[in-house]
Amino acid sequence: MPGPRQNPTDTAPVDRLRAVVTGRPGRGQLVVAALLALLGFAAAVQIRQTDTDDNFGGQSRQNLVALIDSLSSATDRANSQLDDLEQTRDELLTSSQRRQAALEESRDQLEVLNILTGSVAATGPGITIVVRDAQGDDVAAALLNGVEELRVAGAEAIEINDTLRVVASTSFTQQDGLVFVDDVPLRAPYVIDAVGEPGTLNEAMVFRGGFVSSIEALKGSAEIDRADVVLVSSLHQAKPDEYAHPTDR
């Protein structure tokens, strides 16, 4: 082949290399330079590509399978954890709802009991009874009977003379013609306010042999007014129980 083919016996290889590096470049060197530039470019691009390949490209098939396995088992674990946590959350939600319901029920009960024990004022429809001119030693007993009748008829709050709340422990006594309620002397006329269903309460007072009859038998008069709003504003101070303790049930 003609041209720039080298003569093997020319010089020592190292000297030839030095001569090429320091001497003037020929046409052949330009072509080699272009090809080497292409090679360098491709190598640089490929190295960069491999770097940015998330390091999965060079992994063997077994490694990839193991990776996928570990990933899917991690997913399974996370999923089961998620299920557990959701179950816990649901349990907590229902328990808090139950607590809420119990709390509301307790509040309702507390309201009822507060009215029953006279520790709060109460208002609502009901009747007002005014007793005048009753005489004799049985006035207190008649008033007690009347209060009992009101209770039977469903009165929820009762007070006398706007000052005395009638509760479970209220006593009616009579001494020297004076009526004492809870040891407080009572002046006539006696005014009884009762909150409840007005019609029922009225019926409980006026039936034959009932409260009105017994007052009239004592030469007095009993006047009954139904009202849409009866205010029971007096309070009863409950003493702490000395002997009775609540039990668990």
Binding site: V21, V32, A33, L36, A37, G40, F41, A42, A43, A44
Partner: peptide, 18 residues
Amino acid sequence: MIAVLGLLLGILVGLFLE
């Protein structure tokens, strides 16, 4: 000489053009 320069040039172009 120019061959080595060509190689370096290719590497640099590949690195910088990304």
